[in-house]
Design a protein around this nucleic acid. Structure first.
Length: 281
DNA sequence: GCTTGGACCTGATTGC
DNA sequence: TGCAATCAGGTCCAAG
């Protein structure tokens, strides 16, 4: 389940394969993912050179020589595999399911990058670089963790008056961009804040704990992802997922790593929340 | 304006 | 053993 750290890991893996390279051929194997592909998608990519591969929140953005931006979102199960690369470490994933290979990018130098997405929650779009600020899906995003705009003072302001649980508020991309279910729960555990607590009450000392907790969780996950690329590629060649041990996520009934009380599970906004009822208030 | 919950999607897991 | 139901979750959107 790609959240910001996983997407950054994917970006770092794809970047050396894509930047400065030209799309020789693009195979689009179905009309849509979560949304329909842009009109003449493959045609508009073919012959274009990737000037830069960047990221905004969970979105990957490839700036093309045509003046368009290829925007890619991995959704829940999207992944890229690199094949035929000059470096043998990025071999094809033998376990991948080819029937969910929806897009194949053939780049110069014999590099083949395949987008696989069983649940098709991901999407790809093309948008003019010059008008990127107006791209609707990114226009309403809040600041990213680790950015200058994200701080305890910002949280004080952004959460003021919000009656929804803090868990739901942090999942709102307009409040913080790039957080998903897992890292929200991990950050709340570190900050000692219950996911049930009303967002508006997370001010002052609580916000002072939460902002650095969010930053630390994301920074550590990016570091773990980055360092796992080579290990993971050596085994199956895929990018974007890495093993990570969590303090509370998916640990219902297991002892809290701080106080040994069993981790609880509740459902909020139709999503599972895991927390320690003793450490988190 | 804010909040909630359903829809989308399919593989894996659970329950009968 | 086999089938059906449930769950997972990022984002959008309709409804309250």
């Amino acid at each position: 389940m790609p959240e910001l750290p996983e997407v950054e890991t994917v970006r770092r893996g794809l970047s050396p394969m894509m930047e400065g390279k030209t799309f020789l051929r693009v195979e689009q194997r179905r009309p849509d993912l979560r949304f329909p592909f842009p009109a003449r998608f493959a045609e508009r990519l073919t012959g274009q050179t990737v000037r830069h591969l960047g990221r905004a929140a969970k979105f990957l953005k490839a700036e093309l020589s045509s003046g368009e931006m290829l925007i890619m979102h991995l959704g829940m199960t999207g992944r890229f595999t690199i094949d035929g690369a000059p470096t043998a470490s990025f071999a094809a994933d033998p376990g991948s399911d080819a029937k969910h290979d929806h897009v194949v990018f053939h780049l110069e130098g014999g590099v083949q990058i395949t987008y696989n997405d069983p649940r098709r929650f991901g999407f790809m779009e093309l948008w003019p670089v010059a008008q990127f600020d107006a791209y609707p899906r990114l226009k309403k995003l809040g600041p990213e963790p680790l950015s200058n705009g994200f701080s305890a003072a910002y949280l004080n302001e952004a959460l003021a008056g919000r009656q929804t649980p803090i868990k739901a508020a942090l999942l709102d991309q307009a409040v913080v961009a790039g957080l998903g279910n897992i890292y929200v729960l991990e950050a709340l555990f570190r900050a000692g804040i219950s996911p049930k607590r009303k967002a508006a009450s997370v001010v002052g000392a609580r916000a002072e704990r939460l902002a650095p907790a969010v930053n630390a969780v994301i920074a550590e996950a990016i570091e773990a992802g980055g360092s796992s690329i080579s290990d993971f590629a050596a085994t199956d060649g895929s990018l974007g997922y890495f093993q990570h041990s969590f303090d509370v996520y998916d640990r219902e009934g297991e002892p809290c790593k701080t106080c040994a009380d069993p981790i609880k599970r509740i459902v909020q906004s139709s999503r599972s929340s895991f927390y320690c009822g003793k450490c988190q208030r």
